[in-house]
Amino acid sequence: MIDIVNQINATKRELGNQAVTTGEGRSVLLRRVYDARIEDVWSACTDRERLGRWLGPVEGDLRVGGTFQLKDNAGGEILRCEEPRLIKVTWIFGEGMPTEVEVRLAPTDDGRTIFELEHASPAQVVDELVRAYGPGGTIGIGCGWDLALLGLDLFLHGVQFNPATWQDTSEGKEFAVRSCHAWGSAIQAAWATSDDDIAAAVAFAVRHFAPETTADR
């Protein structure tokens, strides 16, 4: 059984202004410490076979300048790869707008690994979406990455985990609800969003990620 509360609390969540290749950007930032050496975490994030066991099957030419495609997920171009500390890729889902994902690793003094993932989108596009629909979409981006970081932690500890099926279980929906609320708090702190607006955004995200549950946590 997964300790959902500890998994949610293990990740620090922030909103940022990370630039994208085309200019100004807006980003979600996730940071946590994994109980594994940096070489092991790097391998889990870059080795085709290992990556497929926690994020999803991946195809493509996995080198700088090459392209990748995750099954039933996003694809893009590999922009930077600086072993064992940094990976940066474009991240495009279907016909959606081009975004960028950067993963940064750093060793701790006690042999663990600080993991940061920043997902940045063009600022103008994000600002227009937020004005039109509120912060619910940003919560959705963060929740998706929360599930990925959970999968990586379980993989590093040798736990068999299939996110595609687990997220539809009662345990998976509980994780999604708590993730939505955690991102709601991060967004409210960064943007000074009103209580009513953030509650509506969290409820919207919960209905998408955890249907038939309550948003009250």
Rank of each mutant, 00 (worst) to 15 (best):
F161M: 06
P135G: 00
G172M: 05
T169D: 10
V103Q: 11
V202G: 08
V126E: 01
G184H: 08
T108Q: 13
L129M: 14
G140N: 14
W145M: 04
T113G: 05
D110Q: 13
L152D: 06
A106K: 13
A120E: 00
I187M: 01
V103C: 09
I187E: 02
G142T: 04
A176F: 07
P107H: 03
T138Y: 02
L150F: 11
H157S: 11
E174Q: 14
A201Q: 06
C180T: 08
I198Q: 07
A200F: 01
K173F: 11
R178M: 15
G142Y: 03
A200P: 02
L156H: 12
R131F: 03
L149T: 15
A164D: 15
A192Q: 14
E128N: 13
V177L: 07
I139H: 10
W166I: 00
A132N: 12
L154A: 09
A176Q: 14
A203N: 13
N162A: 10
P107W: 06
W191P: 03
A190M: 05
A189K: 15
F175T: 09
L152A: 10
A148E: 03
V126R: 00
E128I: 06
A201D: 14
F115M: 08
N162F: 01
L150G: 12
T165P: 01
Q160I: 06
S179M: 05
A176P: 05
L152F: 10
T193H: 02
R104A: 13
I187S: 01
V103G: 02
L117V: 13
Q124N: 13
L105T: 08
G134W: 05
T165M: 12
L147S: 06
G184I: 06
W191H: 11
A186C: 07
D153Y: 10
L147W: 12
H119Y: 01
A164I: 13
I141A: 04
P107A: 10
L149C: 07
S179Q: 05
T165R: 13
G111M: 09
R131N: 12
A176H: 12
